[in-house]
Write a protein that binds this DNA or RNA. Structure first.
Lengths: 206, 206
DNA sequence: GTCTATAAATCGATAGAC
DNA sequence: GTCTATCGATTTATAGAC
């Protein structure tokens, strides 16, 4: 509650403004269009000022990725309320596709652009980041649900990790093709996602 | 076989050299690193010369996409020798993943970078390019095989187009995550692809 | 803390000499 | 047809005045 604290607060505020502006630009025009100058224009500061809050453009991009994963995790979270694990898997799929199609450029930044960002946020070479990271938690949520499905014995004896990977990859395939290659995915991604869920679930079941 | 023809030939040769150099660069460093200067260095001509053979960098990228699709089509083609349609689907999946993982940067250029390229080569908004385009032919090959599977009555009565889309999207999901997000796909993409094929096929079957 | 000004390094594409 | 030279625009990032 002193002067130092106020300064802290103000500093954090401008940092947030910078991130918000950057998010807006990525959302609207994609990551390739994210430049320090555009951010500076948006927040009505000079470009140089941004460097007092972020070391580089890359650090901003990294932070956007982290936040993107948080938003994804938050988007998936309500599925936890679905008690039946198989039904919950369907719900997760729906929510995943919803998220991707509502923020395609954020999705692209995280999952389709430079592998560097993903590595930093999710981990690499099998050794993932701490389980606290939103990315790890989102994946863990999926894997746990798959485990529950297997435990109910409605699924065949499939490998939990493999099954979770297949589900994630399949959903990712739909939205990423829809994003970068629209002509190849005909129809509403929600419908395609539903069909994918049904087919995979049917494939996993006894 | 006159002087004019020799000039034609030589012109085509340098054009091919330019494309070959560009392909090499994309293969090694990715599309973002493809610059006119790098191409010029590689072919040992000045940057300006390239513009006598190609209108712009974009035209070169477009041509690389077209060739990429041709390579993909050629990679899938041997699967036609497999008589059993279900087994042929498995083979197509294997070959698709082989192609993507052997030329990840080409794959990225076609399927994961700028949607513009894909549009130009594959078509957009449902209305696809002429059926002669390698992209269309690759997709048609898959769809035809799916149709044959349904005709054998070993598949449930699923929509042919939808089933083909699911298969493509699922395989694309695996390789594209492996390319831009390696930590999320643990294990050999060939193994994951095999598991995906089995699960989807099982899901499609009665 | 913020700004102005600018460095330093790209890049795509072009003009004009030869 | 090719090269040299360069335009013009862009970028990230920094230096120094205030």
């Amino acid at each position: 509650m002193g002067i130092a604290e106020r300064k802290e607060r103000q500093k954090a505020e401008l940092r947030d403004q910078i991130l918000a502006a950057a998010r807006r630009i990525v959302l609207d025009e994609g990551f390739a269009s994210l430049t320090m100058r555009k951010i500076a224009d948006a927040i009505e500061y000079s470009p140089g000022t941004i460097y007092l809050y972020f070391e580089s453009r890359e650090e901003i991009a990294l932070q956007l990725c982290r936040e993107g994963f948080s938003v994804l995790l938050a988007a998936l979270a309500p599925a936890a309320a679905v008690s039946d694990p198989v039904e919950r898997l369907r719900d997760i799929g729906r929510r995943y596709i919803d998220f991707a199609m509502s923020e395609p450029e954020t999705y692209r930044l995280i999952f389709m652009d430079d592998p560097k960002f993903m590595k930093e946020v999710f981990g690499e070479n099998g050794e993932r980041k701490t389980d606290d990271e939103p990315g790890s938690r989102a994946y863990a949520f999926l894997e746990t649900t798959v485990g529950e499905c297997i435990a109910t014995e409605r699924f065949r004896q499939v490998d939990t990790r493999m099954a979770a990977q297949l589900l994630w990859a399949a959903m990712h395939g739909i939205v990423s093709l829809k994003i970068s290659c629209e002509a190849m995915m005909e129809g509403d991604p929600a419908d395609i996602g539903a069909a994918m869920s049904e087919t995979l679930l049917h494939g996993f079941m006894r």
